[in-house]
Nucleic acid binder design. Structure first.
Lengths: 342, 342
DNA sequence: TTGAAAGCGCTACCAG
DNA sequence: CTGGTAGCGCTTTCAA
């Protein structure tokens, strides 16, 4: 239905060949007379001609299409990464096909197959299970791939990028120590039934916490770690936190998620503990509401968009052949210091 | 490089034609001997054959690809919609190409052209400017299109879906009135220099606010409307809010964004106003932290994923020809009533 | 400076 | 039941 090259050619009274050259005229390598070029371009405009990428690809072999597979997009973490990928992709003339795996192996497999069928030029993926068989399909079809977050021992050589998880805890705890805290607590998620990859991250963070304490000459105590989850009623959480605050009497806290601090607020208020005078707090993820809390919450910031951008740049390099297919890059987080840890 | 149909056919010792039918065997319409089917399938598996969508499309004329264009994806509002679209798309065997326009006309134009070039089957778009010329391209290429949010007078017939903005204010204000509030304030963004489409939404909300007041037999007073923005220092905002609270003495508040309530918290605390005893509050957007605030914040919830899903379903219908190309659908928001308005 | 024709990988018509 | 062949819309080689 839409106009095709032959229509344009006919209207311009010229052959397909010449029309094609006239339109894709790259610096006049092929000497087409200026007059012809004008005529063809005019005809194209008149017909609203837009070349068909699919058939173009069939000849040229490049789709200018990459995929991004993550658990879901409805999550500011992945969404920010997606944004970074998309921005970088656009700059290089690529478009991004997004798919949510919901961490479901079968769904992920279907997606990978579809993407391969579309002959995407590259893929950024947060694999559900790095050992899954369907990832071989990518390798077999020579799809340049960048993986992130799911670190695990793997026999496969691949390109891996993520945040430096150890540093993400060391940094804020060192910051609290430098502010004079001597008894710093760590607030984490409940540890039962954590998926493997998450517990790898958690371990790294606890490691960073230990390291910062050691560097500051402070002692690590396992019962300074408080477990809070998403679940658990308001009441239950408040009680747990109160007990913890009363028995441990921390003067500093690093919460592994900003939200955990929000959930502690109640208990803090009830015990009359003022932030930051009585207890200094740093959260993690730099949620968009941090600056608006009172006092504004200091938080660890992961450069998510930056990671997305870097992954796309890396992918672009792999596609173009200027970057190898394996290697590991860790991106360090930074700290947004605000009132809550002053 | 990857195996193609002819490779499979050769390995199975059979022609391309038969191989094709063997693989796409739709309920044996075309009678291929079971033995042949087996052989072909085995060959395909052995070679890791994945059909090339681009060439398939060239023959069949359906990409099973739709586009989604929004200002950005790094925003929980659009991300949720994207999630809904993606979920519904996957169900129907479609994939989603995402692009951020950053509300930049030129960028949007480029994207639309690329999407048309890819011969997407349909598009969901939040147009930057509904009057922009490049939207004609979609019409000209018969791309089924669903628009959302940017409502404006338009000569173009199109499919439009969005939330019921009037209701999004009427509902919470009516709720507050039912809880006994007699002097309900409205907290909105600063109104200077709002883009047209946003001020259309704001007007609708003020309208809803008025309507709820009238229904409850309460008087509308323009100075019960408090303007807060994203910008403005903590201090400045607190001062403004304190002045407002002191002079207007509201016993109920509807904040047009959850965040505005967060920004008011400081002033509320300083004046010793307890929520919900002294003043009841309802926010808007049902941000993920609402249940975790103390007290948990009541909030208007927009069914964003649902909207995304519906738009995709609608699009699917348009593509299949079972739905017309125009019409307008409003989705009503609901209320998550929590402690803050008890 | 231009054009005829081959062919990218696939499907589907028609003939065996 | 099976296979030759045309052609989807484009690029590109080669010849004029």
């Amino acid at each position: 239905m839409p106009a095709k090259l032959s229509d344009v050619a006919r209207l311009a009274g010229i052959s397909k060949t010449t029309a094609s050259f006239a339109l894709n005229d790259e610096g006049g390598t092929r000497g087409i007379s200026p007059d012809t070029v004008m005529r063809v371009k005019a005809a194209a405009r008149q017909l609203g001609y837009v070349p068909n990428q699919a058939s173009r690809f069939l000849r040229k072999g490049r789709q200018h299409l990459v995929g991004f597979l993550a658990p879901n997009i409805n999550d500011s973490f992945y969404a920010s990464i997606a944004q970074g990928i998309e921005t970088a992709a656009e700059k290089h003339g690529y478009q991004v096909l997004f798919g949510s795996t919901f961490s479901n192996i079968e769904r992920e497999r279907r997606y990978i197959e579809s993407l391969v069928a579309r002959r995407i030029d590259g893929l950024v993926i947060l694999p559900t299970d790095i050992k899954a068989h369907h990832l071989d399909l990518l390798h077999h079809h020579h799809v340049p791939t960048v993986m992130f977050r799911r670190r695990a021992v793997s026999r496969r050589k691949c390109k891996f990028m993520t945040f430096d998880d150890v540093e993400s805890a060391r940094l804020p705890v060192a910051h609290l120590a430098a502010r004079g805290c001597r008894n710093i607590g760590l607030v984490v998620e409940t540890q039962l039934a954590l998926p493997e990859w998450l517990s790898i991250i958690l371990d790294a963070r606890i490691d960073g916490y230990r390291r910062a304490l050691r560097d500051a000459g402070l002692r690590f105590r396992r019962d300074n770690i408080l477990e809070i989850g998403y679940s658990g009623s308001e009441k239950h959480v408040t009680a747990t936190v109160e007990k913890y605050l009363n028995s441990r009497k921390p003067d500093g806290l690093f919460a592994i998620e900003d939200l955990y601090y929000l959930r502690m607020k109640n208990a803090l208020d009830r015990l009359g503990l003022r932030v930051p005078q009585d207890i200094k707090v740093v959260g993690c993820d730099n949620s968009y509401y941090c600056p608006y809390l009172s006092p504004p919450l200091s938080s660890v910031v992961f450069p998510q968009e930056e990671l997305g951008r870097m992954m796309m740049e890396e992918l672009e390099g792999m596609i173009g052949g200027s970057r190898g297919p394996s290697g590991e890059i860790l991106l360090p987080p930074t700290l947004a210091a605000r009132q809550s840890s002053k």
